[in-house]
Each structure stands twice: as C-alpha cells, then as structure tokens.
C-alpha cells in the first residue's frame, strides 16, 4: 500500500517537472520566435497559463503532504505535546472543511466551466477549473488520515515537530520566502 502511495507521489512529481519545463519551453520559444523569426505560437500564452494552474494545484497537494505550506508556528511552538496535538486536531478539521468547500464549489461550478472553451486552444475550461477536484480531494484525504491517526494516538513525533515548525529543511525554508 505504502509503495503504491509513494509511487503515486513520484508520478505527481514527474508531472510537476513536465509541466514546469513545458511552460518554460513554450514561453521561451515564443520569445525566440518573436525576435528571431517575427512569428509566434498562438497557443503558448494560453497553454502556459493552464500548465501554471496545474503546477500550482498539483504542487499544493504534494507540498501539503510534506508540511511545506507557510504557517505561523509562534503560538503552537510554545505549547507542550498535548497542546500541540489539540491544535493539530483543530487545524486539520479546519483544513478538511475549507478543502471540502473547495471541492464542493468546483462540483457546483462544473457545468458552467464545461460549457466554456478557451479562446485560442478551444480547451473546455473544466480541464483547468476542474483541478479543484484533485486539490480539494487530495488535501481532504491527507488531512483525514492525519486526523484519524491523531485521534487514535498514532501520530509520530516527527509530524508533531513538523507541525510546530521545527527541523525545517533548507528546501522548505526557501519555499517560504
């Protein structure tokens, strides 16, 4: 099971690399075409924005799993283990609630996004706005699993430390500026 999950995240990371490279190549190619050949790719502007949306919302789930989203740990840091666990429970409940609302809103809006196409690529906009399904569901699942382990006393000390902002890696710190 754990292997399948890890494999899935590897796949997401692969997607992120592909999407970011794709965006960079499209925009760069357009600069070169414009100055070198006085022409351009019509789809580049639109498609690179959509890639950007996907990078943001797929990456949001991946980084949520890694506890990398910017938080203010000042108060939490001062609490003991028990206080931290209570804050973690409340915090996960709020995260589940807002992410569920995000998912629900995406659901309610799906018909109007499905009935609209992008001006140049003609891509139905549900492909862009529908990413809310993935992010909403992804975050809810991760947070539910955490909540379950919190309530059954199976949360690890590393996770509690990560919640209080301790032992952040350099990568995580640089994600925060």
């Amino acid at each position: 099971m754990q292997r399948a999950i890890d494999l899935f995240y590897k796949f997401l990371e692969f997607l992120l690399i592909l999407l970011l490279s794709g965006m960079a190549i499209m925009v760069f190619l357009n600069v070169v075409l414009r100055y070198g050949f006085n022409s351009g790719l019509n789809v580049s502007d639109e498609l690179s924005r959509y890639f950007f949306v996907w990078v943001t919302f797929i990456g949001a789930v991946v980084t949520f799993r890694e506890h990398s989203h910017v938080g203010v740990e000042t108060l939490v840091m001062m609490f003991g283990r028990r206080g931290r666990i209570i804050c973690m429970i409340l915090s996960n409940i709020i995260i589940i609630a807002v992410s569920a609302i995000f998912f629900w809103g995406t659901w309610k809006q799906a018909p109007i996004n499905a009935s609209m196409v992008a001006p140049v690529t003609k891509l139905p906009m549900i492909w862009v706005y529908g990413i809310g399904f993935f992010t909403g569901a992804g975050v809810v699942i991760i947070a539910l699993e955490r909540l379950f382990r919190l309530l059954t006393g199976r949360i690890t000390e590393e996770e509690i430390a990560a919640f209080a902002g301790e032992h952040m890696s350099l990568e995580q710190l640089s994600e925060r500026t």
């Binding site: 414009r34 351009g40 019509n42 502007d45 001006p119």
Partner: peptide, 27 residues
C-alpha cells in the same frame, strides 16, 4: 506587414491581423 500587434486572447482578432500580415501577439 511584420508589425507586432497586441490583440486580445481571441481567435478572430488573431486571424484578422495575421491575415493582414501582422505578427499578432495575444497579451
């Protein structure tokens, strides 16, 4: 001919200006 014209992100405007020989750029 060859003029870099900003147009809206809109197919018809793109085609109109490309058809006239301009380099239509959506922006």
């Amino acid at each position: 001919e060859g003029m870099k014209v900003r147009v809206m992100q809109n197919d018809i405007f793109l085609d109109t200006f490309q058809n006239l020989g301009a380099n239509a750029t959506p922006m």
